[in-house]
Every structure is written in structure tokens, then in C-alpha cells.
């Protein structure tokens, strides 16, 4: 199955290469920038995120995001995103989270519409500041690969600062996401296995920061740190995690690519029975995460 995901990623990458067009430049893999697209500009972006290793059993997931973004005005940008999921999980069952083995290369998993409004320009003002708002509906649970209706609204404050005339870029995001999620029933689960199908409400808080330096023409290297915590109606604080790692970016006139490795370095909250890595959250998160973003500017 790992091979299937590998092939899937390569095929999607190849499709990207064969397309002649398209995205808002992402210097980071996870941290968003405050800069908007100019009026009338359009870009295309493709994400591939591989999440793997829960410490027990087999777990590898591939998240994809396909985005088209459009500059409505010089300050206001809107986008539409299609999410996809490929998963291979076996040998690990967790009540309410991982009900059974799952294995498929790729399925459409969700849709999102988002807007970004720029208040202050990072190049003109002391600091760049934008607001990002997204509404999403997922019909696949990105953790288990099972059916689950998930409605979310997310708000983020995006800050960005240039140093050394723009050769060094510092960015930070702070956000809150509210989610209503309902699992779909699954036939044939063991009688004592918990799989609640009543709606749950979740609040997720995210804080992230990144710094990147242009070490050669077109090339940036840097690092990112990403904190996330989630509270939900049944268990209170369900999880928290800190991920951190390096990021490499190449930006050309019409296209760009960013590769970020963001392993989980600390985490807490709920743990599954028998979890040996007690300083990580491994129910919804994994030990390893790597993301490739590719964008094309029209």
C-alpha cells in the first residue's frame, strides 16, 4: 500500500508538471503569509502531505489539496480548494478514532472556500497583517479514512515581516477553528468498540511561526514551528502537539515549490492503550509529516 501511495504522489506530481499553469507563493509549508494576490491575478497550488508512524501498527496517509486562488482586489483574495486523502492503516485500533484497517490510494475528501483580506503590507508598513477565513466540509475523516461529516469554520491572523530588504522573512499565524463532526455508522465493529455517531463540537487553536532566508537567488531555507491544540465536547482537551522542522523553497518567475519536514517533537492529551511514546500525541497526529507545495502563477 505504501507503494501505491508513493506511486499516487508521483503521478499527481507528474500531472502537475504536465499542466501548463498555476498559486500565491508559499515560502513555508505550513505558515501562511500575509501578502495577497494583486487584483485580477490567479494562481494554482497543489499540496501533498505525507503523515506516517503512530508508533504501533502501520499508518501512512497522503493528504492532497488542489487550490485555485484569485485576487478580487489588491487587498482581497478568495480561493476554492479540493482536498483528497489516501491512507494505509492496519494493526492499530483505537476506540472512537481508528475503527478498522483502511487502505486506498486516493479519494476526494473535502471542499473549502477561503478568503484573505490584507490590512497592512509587509513591504510598505512596519509589519504585514492579514485576516484569513475558511469554510470547509469534509466527508472523509482524514485520521481514520472512514466516513465522517465535518463542517468547520476557521479564522487566522497572518503576520509577516521583512528583514534585510526582503532577504529574510519572518511570519506567524494565530488561529481558531470551530468544527461540528458526525461519524457515519460502520457495520461489523466488535460489540465493545466505541464508535459514537452523535455530533461532536470541537475547537482547535493553532499558533505557528517560520523564518526563512534567501541563501541564493531563487532559493530560501528556513524553519517552521507549529503548535496545535484541540478541545472537544466529550473529553475536554483532546490533544496538543508541537511540530518543528526545516523548510526549503524555490521560487521562479512563474512557479514555485516548497518542501517541509515537520516531525512532531512534543505532544500530549489522549493516548491510546499501550502507547509507548508518552511525550507525543499519536491518536490524531503522527510522528512524521512532510509536505510538498507546488504553485503556478498565471
Amino acid at each position: 500500500m505504501k507503494n501505491k501511495i508513493k506511486v499516487g504522489a508521483a503521478v499527481l506530481g507528474a500531472l502537475m508538471l504536465s499542466a501548463t499553469s498555476f498559486a500565491d507563493e508559499g515560502l513555508f509549508g505550513y505558515v501562511r503569509l500575509a501578502e495577497p494576490l494583486p487584483k485580477g491575478a490567479m494562481d494554482f497550488e497543489q499540496w501533498f502531505t505525507v503523515r506516517s508512524d503512530k508508533g504501533e501498527g502501520q499508518y501512512t496517509a497522503l493528504d492532497t489539496k488542489t487550490e485555485i486562488e484569485w485576487g478580487v482586489t489588491d487587498r482581497f483574495t478568495t480561493s476554492v480548494e479540493l482536498y483528497g486523502l489516501g491512507i494505509n492503516t492496519s494493526g492499530l485500533m483505537i476506540d472512537a478514532y481508528l475503527p478498522k484497517d483502511a487502505s486506498y490510494v486516493w479519494k476526494p475528501a473535502g471542499l473549502e472556500v477561503a478568503t484573505k483580506y490584507n490590512f497592512l503590507s509587509p513591504a510598505k508598513d512596519w509589519i504585514g497583517l492579514s485576516q484569513y477565513v475558511a469554510f470547509s466540509y469534509f466527508w472523509e475523516d482524514v485520521h481514520s479514512g472512514q466516513r465522517k461529516d465535518v463542517y468547520s469554520v476557521e479564522g487566522l491572523l497572518l503576520a509577516q515581516k521583512y528583514f534585510m530588504d526582503g532577504q529574510l522573512v519572518l511570519a506567524g499565524n494565530l488561529g481558531v477553528e470551530a468544527t461540528s463532526a458526525t461519524r457515519k455508522p460502520i457495520d461489523g465493529l466488535p460489540p465493545d468498540f466505541e464508535w459514537p455517531t452523535t455530533p461532536e463540537m470541537e475547537i482547535e487553536v493553532t499558533a505557528s511561526a517560520g523564518i526563512t532566508y534567501r541563501f541564493a537567488e531563487n532559493w530560501f531555507i528556513g524553519g517552521e514551528i507549529f503548535y496545535q491544540t484541540e478541545h472537544e465536547t466529550v473529553v475536554g482537551q483532546e490533544r496538543w502537539s508541537v511540530q518543528a522542522g526545516p523548510t526549503l523553497h524555490y521560487g521562479a518567475k512563474k512557479w514555485w515549490a516548497t518542501l517541509t519536514w515537520l516531525p512532531q517533537i512534543r505532544g500530549g492529551g489522549l493516548m491510546y492503550p499501550g502507547q509507548t511514546d508518552t511525550d507525543l500525541h499519536l491518536i490524531e497526529k503522527t510522528k512524521q509529516e512532510i509536505r510538498l507545495r507546488i504553485g503556478y502563477n498565471f
Binding site: 505504501k2 508538471l17 521562479a252 512557479w255 510522528k287 507546488i294
Partner: peptide, 25 residues
């Protein structure tokens, strides 16, 4: 644990960089 899908992901930027060069003077 090795993350083998990374190898496939790495192929994409390498191919992109190899195939593109520009200069506008």
C-alpha cells in the same frame, strides 16, 4: 521508521528545477 513516499515527493521539485531556467535582461 523510514518515510518512503518522501522519495516520490522529492522527485517533483528536482524535476521542476531541472526543467526551468530564465533570464530577462
Amino acid at each position: 521508521m523510514p518515510i518512503r513516499p518522501i522519495h516520490a515527493l522529492l522527485m517533483v521539485p528536482v524535476a521542476l528545477v531541472a526543467g526551468t531556467a530564465y533570464a530577462t535582461e
